[in-house]
Design a protein around this nucleic acid. Structure first.
Lengths: 126, 126
DNA sequence: TTGATATCTGAACATATGTTCAGATATACT
DNA sequence: AGTATATCTGAACATATGTTCAGATATCAA
C-alpha cells in the first residue's frame, strides 16, 4: 500500500515478466480500475454482501415496513435490524418516514433491484 | 436463527404490531427472500465487495494476464493475488490456462461486467 | 543435477463485520 | 405525572476476511 500513486507506469517498468510471451502490461494497465473508485464500488457491493441486508431489501421492495415488523418477519432482533437499516440508510438505499413511535422504512433506490434480480437469476442458471 | 423454517407464518402470529396501521405482514412475508438463497446471493456480492478483487477483474476484463503481472500491475504481493484468484476461480468468475511456469487467468463469467458497470455508473451519478 | 523462476499453500496476524446486550431516547396512552 | 411501546445507540463479543510470511511444488534453463 506504499506506492500505488502511479501503479500503471511503475508496474510495467519493474516487472516486464511476460513481455516476450504476451502484450506488455501497459495496454492493460491503462484500464485498471483506480484504487479509490474500486474502494467505493467494493463498499457498495459489500453492502449487498450480507444475507440479512438482502432479505431486508427484499421486504422493502414490496412495501414499506416498520422496524419491529421487519424484525418479526425476518426472525432478527430489532437491534440487529436497526443497525443494518442504518447502513442501508447511509448510502441512500433506503429511506424512512416517522409515524408516531413507528419508523417506516422504504426502498429509496430501486436501482438495486436490478442488481438483486441479476444475481438471483445468475445463481438459478448455474 | 432457531425457527426460521416458516418465518412468514411465525412472524405474523408472533408480532402483529402494526396491523391496525398497515397491511398485515403476511402480504410481504410471502415475498421474503429465502434464507438460503439470500446466503448464496450474499456470498456472490461479497466476492465483488473487495477493491483488489474488483481491480483484478477490471484487468482480466481486458485480457488474460499471469499472476506475476497482475501483482505488478496492481501493486499487490503475488501471494495475495494468488489467494484472491483462488476465490474468484472457486465461483467460476475466472478461469486459468497454464503455459510453462506461467498461469494465465482470464475472465470466465462476462456476466459480472454488467454488474460491475452498473455500480460504476451508479456511483458516478450520485 | 543444480539453480532460478512462477505459482501455490496454510498458518499467523491484524482488521473488519454483524450480533447481542444494556441502556438511552422518543412517542403514545392513562 | 407515570407507564408502556418503538426505535436507536455504543460497547463488547465472536466470527469473517485479507494480507503477510515461510515454505512447498512445479517448470524451465544451464
Amino acid at each position: 500500500m506504499s506506492d500505488i500513486s502511479t501503479p500503471e507506469i511503475g508496474a510495467v517498468e519493474v516487472a516486464p515478466v511476460c513481455d516476450d510471451l504476451h502484450d506488455p502490461e501497459a495496454i492493460v494497465a491503462a484500464d485498471v480500475l483506480a484504487a479509490d473508485k474500486a474502494q467505493q464500488m467494493a463498499e457498495f457491493f459489500s453492502l449487498l454482501g450480507d444475507a440479512n441486508r438482502l432479505r431486508i431489501l427484499s421486504v422493502l421492495a414490496v412495501q414499506e415496513v416498520c422496524v419491529g415488523d421487519l424484525a418479526a418477519i425476518l426472525g432478527m432482533s430489532e437491534s440487529a435490524v436497526s443497525h443494518q437499516l442504518r447502513s442501508l440508510k447511509a448510502v441512500r438505499l433506503v429511506g424512512y418516514r416517522k409515524q408516531g413511535r413507528h419508523v417506516y422504512y422504504y426502498l429509496d433506490d430501486h436501482h438495486v433491484l436490478e442488481l438483486y434480480q441479476a444475481v438471483a437469476d445468475h445463481l438459478d442458471e448455474a
